[in-house]
Amino acid sequence: MSAGDTITPLAAALWLANIVLDTVGQLAFKAAAGDERAGDGIARWRYMATHPWLWLGVGCYVLEFLVWIAFLSLLPLSEGILLGSINIVAIMLAGRWLFGEKLTRLRVVGMFLVALGVAIVGIG
């Protein structure tokens, strides 16, 4: 990493918090949005708003919002994005384990190209 010497303990803690909040939050959103009992249109939103998954996701989202502002004021945006590339792999694996999403070869190739591209953009 080009700016490894700028990663302070505070920045590292904020990074770790970002990974955990992002992964838990995204899985909660998928659990809310993918629930077929929710129906369609306004009724779908009403169903999601009265079940806990959406709110777990929103809670993570709000915390991540503050963590991300703090993180970006310590590091350039591009390096923040580099460190975020690990979240792609974490959420891909979590989707496989918790939702049975098939890891077809084309999906795996696509996800790794994106993660690699994000990392290179950050390093670049």
């Binding site: 591009s78 077809t104 084309l106 999906r107 190739v109 696509g110 996800m111 790794f112 190209l113 994106v114 993660a115 690699l116 591209g117 994000v118 990392a119 290179i120 953009v121 950050g122 390093i123 670049g124």
Partner: peptide, 20 residues
């Protein structure tokens, strides 16, 4: 150039995901 390569990889990866 590295960032442009990274951006191209991201777009290529998303095309793969779309085809998938």
């Amino acid at each position: 150039p590295a960032r442009l390569v990274g951006a191209a990889l991201i777009v290529a990866g998303i095309v793969c995901l779309g085809v998938a």
